[in-house]
Amino acid sequence: MISDITLGQFFPGNSVLHRLDPRTKIILTVAFIVSVFFANNPVAFAFLTLAVCFMTALSRISLKVVLKGIKPIILIILFTAIINVFMTTGEGEPLIEFWIIKIYTRGIVRAVFMAVRVILLIMGSSVLLTYTTSPIALTDGLESLLSPLKVIKLPVHTFAMMMSIALRFIPTLVEETEKIMNAQKSRGADFSNGSLVERAKALIPLLIPLFVSSFKRAEELATAMECRCYRGDKNRVKLNKLEYHGIDLAWFLIFALFVALLVCLSVLPYSFGVDNELYNILFYKI
């Protein structure tokens, strides 16, 4: 059944991360993404990796699932890595020199860490936000966070309402698609065989009725909403208001500590002037 598709990539659960306020998670995710770009030496990266693993463990989402999320972007990772290998110029003798290609140690190191950085970025933000926050909570969180923009007349509420209605109608439309597909299959339509062009063509008679009915639905829904006194966010009260709890504050503090530590690890080592082989490797500036 296609109607069992997961909306977004949300995995329902009851872990600490699931219970955090969506706004907290959005803010922390932004902070996390920024801090990932601070990390600039092996120790800082190790610390970052530990932190991401710790969060993954807390989310109770299996590591396999989380790693699967990286699959679609493997190409991008490889591409950036290769670019880094070839384009980085370092001091001293190149490791390999061939025709116009010069590969330096720094380039290889940089490529490896770039890949690690992207992987950690995806893992961290999916565990922190997309895997543990239901799309509707995400919408509510965004609406609440963006609400100051209402001052400059940005229709934040309208966008949030559109998002949540879209989410509400995904299963309904999937169900309808299935119905139309079956109706057409029963009359001999073939969706699974033939060339790509043929299959795409077979989708046209599927999409047209779907579009027509969506417009009809939209109109009916609009009338029904008007009947229920909807007039945008004018004077509107929400039943389930988002509220920060103690746990949110705790996470803000933990995260602040994490960012602070990461920044220290990335900046401080170079102000000591220590010159020792191990130290130079550990804090090799990428």
Binding site: S164, R228, V237
Partner: peptide, 22 residues
């Protein structure tokens, strides 16, 4: 199907009263 707005029953029933600003 075309008159339910929310993704949770409770929130859908609350939609009208929410608009009334109670």
């Amino acid at each position: 199907d075309n008159q339910l707005v929310a993704t949770v029953v409770e929130e859908d029933v609350a939609f009208g009263p929410e608009n009334l600003g109670l």
